[in-house]
Write a protein that binds this DNA or RNA. Structure first.
Lengths: 236, 236
DNA sequence: CGCTACCTTGATGAAGCTCAATAACAGTGG
DNA sequence: CCACTGTTATTGAGCTTCATCAAGGTAGCG
């Protein structure tokens, strides 16, 4: 892990970590023991958390803020593949096979993180069957998300991908709602595999479907169902 | 699992399964016990092995042939995301979280498969720490591959993706060599996120770099290093 | 108020898709 | 062995989509 300023975990941190999806099956004492070996860190925007191929010595849990997962394809180019929010985890793929992070991670917004030593996590996995299964399930669901993303990149147009992204933020609530973007639009664009210009034009095109930019960070979705129909290709 | 014609596993099957990456850490007797609950199946080309959202009751290990992983993005469209060859595994992501396959699988060529009941595998995972770690590592490396694929789709041109695909088939051997494609070019094209026409044109473009189509299934790569330089974007 | 990012908008060009025609096969049956 | 046929790969022409380049516009902030 790069030289992040570290501090002890606070009680408030522990509370928020308890509700992280990954730790749900862990009994209270076991989580406490695990967190006993962990520490907190604060990263300013754009701060690199770890580089690709660096030894994977910690699991990073996002307590607050947004962290980006960056994959490199050549020596000079890399791109944003995932956005990781509070309660989610980054770096897990490096812990179990090569021992090196397969991707880089970077804070997108300012972020507060929990750093869990790899050794402690592995030990915890060996002693708690529940966490083990959960971890397998967790990795599986990550696979699911990535596969879906690949399919979307191949099959959907830019406006459809934008629509799909927005629907992912309208948490299963139906009806008119406003979405707050967690980060700048240029970042979102990279995440969706397009330029900021294309994102802008795509949003403009979605206005006919009741999607309106409201200021810089908010987007109003009038009718998620209509948007969903467009994304599914009913319209075209 | 759909109604595939099943048969008992032969000794030859068992030998080939022993060398499957996933089962490496398993002691001989444990593997024998696991395979005792499994059976073999034969699928003709294009045969669907399982559909998306179907209950994930088996892990499928490819003994021979090629199997494709298909992801659906809408009710009408789906695309090929991965090609799975002998010794590799498909369906693993469904076993650990929702209990349903997150993708569909389809034989691409004729294929011989081992079907391992999910319950037997889970039991084996609980009793063998080695396999457990290995499974975590296995899922992690799958994540790695998919992340890489996403980055390639976003950042590389069609000819670069084709080059990258070919390099993946030139197993770390240096120097002039001929690659045999495991399946039809239209399938490869779908896998690479392009149309068969674009694949054809890309190959034509790569001819200047010493890549020659030889007949329908074979491709001659004269100089992998030159190709690698192109893929990495040194040329453009 | 003026600065600096960031977002939007417009014009242009290139990459890749679609449609259509041709060419190379593979398998079939004579 | 060869013509026939359905399938797959290639090639070409036109067009859509998206990236690029360049120019305003807008919001936040000293």
């Amino acid at each position: 892990m790069t030289d992040l300023p570290r501090e002890p975990l606070t009680d408030a941190d522990a509370v928020r970590l308890r509700s992280a999806a990954l730790f749900v099956p862990l009994p209270r004492e076991a989580l406490a023991a695990l967190l006993g070996e962990a520490c907190a860190a604060v990263a300013e925007p754009f701060r690199v958390l770890f580089e690709q191929d660096q030894p994977a010595d910690h699991l990073v849990v996002v307590i607050e803020g947004v962290v980006g997962v960056m994959a490199a394809v050549g020596p000079h180019e890399s791109c944003l593949v995932e956005l990781i929010g509070p309660g989610q985890v980054v770096g897990e793929a490096g812990l179990f096979d090569t021992g090196r992070y397969p991707v880089a991670a970077q804070a997108i917004t300012g972020a507060r993180l929990a750093l869990i030593p790899a050794a402690a996590l592995r030990e915890c996995l060996d002693t708690h069957a529940g966490l083990r299964r959960h971890m397998l399930g967790f990795l599986s669901s990550r696979l699911r998300v990535l596969v879906q993303q690949i399919a979307q990149l191949k099959l959907m147009s830019a406006p459809q991908r934008v629509g799909s992204f927005l629907l992912g933020l309208t948490q299963r609530r139906a009806g008119r709602q406003t979405i707050r973007l967690a980060c700048e639009r240029r970042i979102i664009a990279g995440m969706l595999g397009m330029t900021p210009e294309s994102l802008s034009r795509s949003l403009r095109q979605l206005r006919d479907l009741g999607v309106q930019s409201q200021g810089k960070r908010d987007i109003l979705v009038e009718d998620p169902e209509r948007l969903r129909a467009f994304v599914a290709g009913i319209t075209e």
